[in-house]
């Protein structure tokens, strides 16, 4: 029976109501939100930043909100966060290695090898090595910032990968490269569970989302006034 990496059961907050999902190892789930804030609220609730009004959140088998903060943070060491969240005063190479080096689960040599392997998947790897890694996040395009988030996950080898609005507001080629990198990450052992957040309506014919072959897709409901 596959391990359940994250689950929420009948969770309600100020921005969504009665959300239920269950994400198993190696699977991909898509959560469609009606706004960026709603999506962030969902991620915050799932990862222990904002206690829900009702319901239970379990991460890696643990009831998240019953744990002390130190144990919650220790669990988050196994979670990769992509789609943003780069630290503005760190260069890209510092950003992509930050969580993997902060949590002493891998040696610096292992982290470096994983980073080189991940960057090796990119068609413009020379450009990444010479121009993008030594740059600050502000100087990168939106696509490159999101790719850096995925590379950061590659260095960490997380059990759960949360991709926050990874493919939104991008053009075809950029989306294709991010999807390829995501697929490559999913082939790693042990395969991570992937939660992709997407802005819009689930029924709007998102061919990109369907091409990812998600195991499930849910749309968050707004709370009734």
């Amino acid at each position: 029976m596959p391990e359940v990496i994250a689950s929420i059961d009948q969770i309600s907050t100020e921005s969504f109501r009665s959300a239920t999902m269950r994400l198993e190892a190696g699977t991909l789930g898509i959560v469609v939100t009606s706004s960026i804030d709603q999506g962030r609220d969902f991620v915050d609730t799932l990862l222990g930043l904002a206690a829900p009004e009702q319901g239970v959140v379990r991460l890696l088998g643990q009831p998240l909100y019953e744990l002390p903060e130190s144990r919650r943070l220790a669990l988050l060491a196994q979670v990769g966060h992509a789609g943003g969240g780069l630290i503005s005063n760190l260069k890209i190479w510092e950003n992509v290695s930050l969580p993997a080096l902060f949590h002493p689960t891998s040696t610096p040599d292992e982290v470096e090898a994983r980073l080189i392997e991940a960057i090796g998947q990119l068609p413009n790897k020379e450009e990444w090595m010479q121009k993008r890694l030594p740059a600050l996040p502000d100087t990168l395009s939106r696509y490159a910032q999101r790719m850096a988030g995925l590379i950061r996950c590659a260095a960490l080898r997380p059990r759960l990968l949360v991709a926050e609005f990874l493919l939104d507001d991008l053009e075809g080629e950029a989306i294709g490269r991010l999807v390829d990198m995501l697929a490559w990450l999913r082939r790693k052992e042990p395969p991570p569970a992937v939660l992709l957040l997407h802005l819009g309506a689930a029924t709007a014919g998102h061919s990109t989302l369907q091409s990812l072959q998600p195991d499930w897709m849910i749309q968050l409901e707004k709370p009734t006034p």
Binding site: L76, I87, L98
Partner: peptide
Amino acid sequence: AAMKVQGEIRSLYLMGID
């Protein structure tokens, strides 16, 4: 203050970094 405004402190937390 800039890190807080840009949501980077949230990002640190989500990476399990106190």
